[in-house]
Design a protein around this nucleic acid. Structure first.
Lengths: 211, 211
DNA sequence: ATGCAATTTTACAACGGATGAAAAATGTAA
DNA sequence: TTACATTTTTCATCCGTTGTAAAATTGCAT
């Protein structure tokens, strides 16, 4: 007899616990010793499982850091799917982007410090940075597809993609520039709004340096 | 006695030849058998050098595909550095972006087909896609820095980053959306101009679906 | 409780990418 | 030719990743 996927038996609980133990150990060790300096064998040992078992839970070393970033996307796509009637493309996009950014920052204090540790590791390891950019890219493409559906008939896929790329691209680069400069959290948030407004207003209408 | 880096002796010529042989063999084998299915040992054998020698020329397997993409950036940064007096930020950015896109497409017919083969490989291998996105991201950050210098006093780093991110992001996503859809070369170019205009005009002023 | 079936974990072997170090080969200058 | 600088090769090793089959664990029916 086969078991349903929504089992709440001992088996499932242990799996969840092992998964957590692996993720926690990984993030902690990455923060302590650095990403490249931490081997999967060490992570597995910390979680008290065999090295091979690690790959039963995560497809790769990189995946440990991004394992929960996939779930949040569904929510954003759902927001797009049932847009408020009459809502502008720009308004909907900004609303979705804001929600996406906020949902990263909420949660209890523990997950906040953990989120920061994760971000630090990602930023400092080129391979992880690349992986993060690819995930963001994929999300943007899916968002464009969802917008195309939501505004069926009114919006071309290319237009939707351009809109998403423009807004997200502006915010992404401005945020990184702000972080690189060593800005405080408040200044980074300010950079995001500046970028959002610039994308909405358009590059050609840039206040100071326009024609 | 030590040798200058601009030596035209036998040694230098052989090095250039070996480098080319490795890159050519790699791209050819990637196109024939696929990226993951090709080992560095096979590439090295094709170029008639040892496996270890490969790493004397390229830092990694991924690098073989991106080895020439670094040089073109200097040119774009130079364009920014000596902008035409009085030129608008938007105008300069568009000019730089166009030049960057065109310089990818020019060259003799051989390098054109090779460029297409490279692009196909990159698009079909997630790891290479990620690497490409990271390189593009780094380029954008450098471009933002250069713009900040070029418009010293008039343009904040965050504003510059937002501008670059908005324009490049729009074109990038629109291009990919168009390619994904299976568009022809002409349609892809059309998508690029649509995206450029959208970024210049601003999302909020989107013709059809604005408030 | 006991045995059976499904599932998970483990140990083991192997492959490919990447790096370090020393030996061998090659180009260069005198 | 000889001595030196540089490049290539060989060899050993580490780590991430995957396949496989044995062993352990769990859920369930009797």
């Amino acid at each position: 007899m086969q078991y349903s996927s929504l089992m709440s038996g001992l088996r499932e609980r242990k799996k969840q616990r092992t998964r957590r133990a692996l993720a926690d150990a990984a993030i902690r060790l990455f923060a302590e010793r650095g990403y490249e300096e931490t081997t999967i064998a060490e992570i597995a040992a910390e979680a008290e499982v065999s090295t091979r078992t690690f790959f039963g839970y995560f497809a790769s070393k990189e995946d440990v850091i991004f394992h929960d970033s996939a779930g949040r996307m569904e929510e954003l796509l759902a927001m797009v799917a049932d847009r408020r009637p009459g809502e502008t493309l720009a308004d909907l996009l900004v609303r979705v982007l804001r929600h996406g950014l906020e949902s990263t920052a909420d949660g209890d204090s523990f997950s906040l410090t953990e989120a920061k540790a994760r971000m630090d590791v990602i930023m400092s390891v080129p391979a992880l940075q690349a992986r993060g950019l690819r995930l963001l890219f994929d999300s943007q493409m899916r968002l464009a597809g969802a917008l195309c559906d939501a505004f069926a008939g009114e919006l071309d896929l290319v237009e939707a993609a351009a809109a998403v790329g423009s807004l997200v691209g502006a915010v992404k680069l401005a945020t990184m520039a702000s972080l690189t400069r060593g800005d405080t959290g408040e200044q980074v948030r300010e950079a995001m709004t500046v970028a959002t407004e610039l994308a909405l207003r358009g590059l050609g209408a840039s206040g100071k340096i326009s024609a």
